[in-house]
Nucleic acid binder design. Structure first.
Ligand code: FES
Ligand code: FES
Lengths: 151, 151
DNA sequence: GATTTTGTAACAAGACAAGTGACATGAGCC
DNA sequence: GGCTCATGTCACTTGTCTTGTTACAAAATC
């Protein structure tokens, strides 16, 4: 559990859902992510609130994709997750009195802000459909048996 | 303790040391960083190993700057710290079997690698002297009393 | 009414930087 | 030589955040 893997997981799930029209239960999703149904619900709550997926209770319920993959960027998913912290590094003190520390923080914050902006710009320029297409290319190139969720 | 603040702290200390020629003990440094002498020694060990600072025991001992600030970039300090993890986010699985997950991880890794490269490039293009100069400018602009470590 | 499935709260586990106490080691001072 | 200062390092605790897990209420289907 070294990193925050929510974005990675959600992207995986969304593409998975696109390939299986029927609703997927939290338990099925949890199994494919090697985790727990509660974690799935907790993480997907943001996507539901933003209207990317829908959840239904009872028999035949589960999660369904609402919007096509072509209309969702990686950034959309990131935002739906509540814009988790990107960086593991940061300043020691947010409001330092020492002017030197302020100068240091400014320099670091500038660089980090730029890097974050680049990252988010990149995420905003890639749709989930493009990743799915990349997957398709790999799938046909290799044998179809390599695809893990053949169900 | 939300973030890894080692880089921020070390930059602060190095510039501080440049402005006070005499050796600074871990205890003095700890006081100005609002932390503990052991944390200071632990964190500065990397800088010593890389030859940026020297530490001496006994009376009159402590930490002294070896190289001028103009010959140290923020990246040098980052590297001396052991290149800590930059990002808080990451893939759920480093070696996934599922091809979809592989495609997702590739897309994310690409974007993150670019962002990290940009960040490190920026850090490599700024010397500690430049930050010190920025501090000097602020200091003369305001009243000198605002400088917290007047000692 | 029984079963399935989500929603949510509450809490434990894992990871990692940071904080802390203890003690050995070496360098100067008397 | 002995004392004091200061680093070096080990071992352990704390704080914080994502994950994992258990428990249970609420809603929808059979
Ligand atoms: S896409 Fe279904 S398990 Fe990876
Ligand atoms: S530079 Fe000395 S305390 Fe900030």
């Amino acid at each position: 559990m070294r990193n925050d893997s929510r974005l990675s997981r959600m992207l995986h799930v969304l593409i998975h859902m696109d390939r299986h029209q029927n609703a997927a239960t939290s338990e099925m999703i949890a199994k494919m992510l090697n985790t727990n149904p509660v974690v799935v619900r907790r993480t997907m709550a943001g996507l539901r609130d933003q209207g990317y997926v829908r959840s239904e209770k009872g028999h035949g319920g589960g999660w369904t994709l609402v919007r096509p993959l072509s209309e969702m960027t990686l950034l959309d998913v990131y935002n739906a997750l509540g814009e988790p912290h990107v960086f593991a590094i940061g300043p020691a003190d947010d409001q330092p009195k020492c002017l030197v520390e302020q100068a240091v923080n400014n320099a670091l914050a500038d660089a980090m802000k730029e890097a974050e902006a680049l990252l988010l710009r990149r995420l905003g320029n890639v749709t989930l459909e493009e990743i799915a297409a990349e997957f398709e290319a790999k799938l046909t190139a290799r044998s179809a048996a390599a695809y893990s969720c053949a169900s």
